[in-house]
């Protein structure tokens, strides 16, 4: 690519849309006692904000609550963000 700016070509960037974690109204809290690591939460996270180790990336988690809603063990609860 020439250095000349001919057209809008965007480069892949982590955080391209900012830290969407700031959007959250409710924060997912995992109860590790109840979690059986089935991975359904990660499977359904629209933003892939839950890692393979089932760590939730709070920098980007928008707090949609799908993980809590879909968890078969009810191991995730949504709590009001303290701002």
């Amino acid at each position: 690519m020439s250095t000349r700016m001919r057209l809008a070509i965007s480069r892949p960037t982590r955080g391209a849309c900012g830290k969407t974690g700031s959007w959250r109204v409710f924060r997912p809290i995992v109860d590790l006692e109840k979690c059986n690591s089935c991975g359904i939460c990660a499977m359904f996270c629209p933003d892939a904000a839950i890692s393979e180790d089932l760590e939730i990336d709070l920098d980007f988690c928008k707090g949609c609550g799908i993980c809590a809603h879909e968890c078969p063990k009810k191991a995730i609860r949504m709590e009001r963000e303290e701002k």
Binding site: G15, A16, T20, C45, P46, K62, C64
Partner: peptide, 17 residues
């Protein structure tokens, strides 16, 4: 994953998923 964290889709967007 081929989408870097993360798009500006609405929370709970099934298009993103």
């Amino acid at each position: 994953e081929y989408i870097l964290k993360c798009t500006s889709a609405c929370a709970g967007c099934s298009d993103s998923l």
